[in-house]
């Protein structure tokens, strides 16, 4: 464990908590893409299949459990409890166009052709594009509530911090995981224009408005 990965995990946890609180407190999931939340639930499910079979550390097990429970709770809140506030008119990204290519790619490019490894690889590829429906929704509505932009900033920062973690691990432990690194770079790049808008607007107290 290193500081980059720890802060990254905490940023990830913060994002998930911000989203759950936003939906629970405002009793509304307006401006949130349910499609992205479904993809995140798929990402954690396929990545943490070894949750019950492999023990890495108490921290690792607890965090995996929290991510899985929180992602399903978010999907439940959006599609069941606060279904009436779900913006299905704007949340129209075809996630099958993300699921199928990621699955095919995980069959073609992986480190080991076993169920666990292919599922882990699939979850890495899928996570890199899972935010697309959310970014698509924000671009369609042209704006985002500030709480939603804080959620996105924390979520985007987590993987950016993981990039620093991989640099550190390469230098300090001569360890690298190319599939995770390439996917992590793609994932972080997708947030770049959002990061720009967040830093130039939201941090100055303005609403996040996308140029129409």
């Amino acid at each position: 464990m290193n500081i980059f990965r720890l802060v990254g995990d905490l940023s990830h946890l913060l994002a998930i908590i911000i989203l759950l609180l936003k939906i629970w407190k405002t009793r509304s999931c307006a401006g949130i893409s349910g499609k992205s939340q479904i993809l995140f639930a798929v990402v954690y499910t396929t990545r943490y299949l070894d949750l019950l079979t492999t023990y890495v550390s108490a921290y690792n097990t607890v965090m995996k459990f929290v991510f899985i429970v929180a992602s399903y709770a978010t999907v439940y809140l959006m599609y069941v409890k606060f279904r009436a506030t779900y913006d299905h008119n704007h949340d129209t990204f075809r996630i099958e166009f993300l699921l199928v290519p990621c699955f095919i790619l995980s069959l073609l490019i992986n480190h080991e052709f076993t169920v666990l490894e292919v599922m882990w690889t699939f979850s890495i590829y899928l996570e890199s594009v899972a935010i697309l429906p959310q970014l698509f929704l924000v671009s369609k509505t042209g704006e985002a509530e500030s709480i939603t932009s804080h959620y996105l900033f924390a979520l985007g920062s987590y993987r950016a911090l993981y990039l620093l973690n991989w640099v550190y691990r390469y230098m300090a432990e001569d360890h690298y995981e190319l599939i995770a690194i390439v996917s992590g770079v793609v994932q972080t790049v997708l947030y770049c224009d959002f990061f720009y808008l967040y830093i130039t607007k939201v941090l100055k107290g303005k609403k996040l408005q996308l140029p129409a």
Binding site: R5, N60, H111, Y162, Y176, E177
Partner: peptide
């Protein structure tokens, strides 16, 4: 080289 998987990461 890849020392083991990055499975210790979340």
């Amino acid at each position: 080289d890849r020392k083991g998987n990055a499975k210790d990461e979340l």
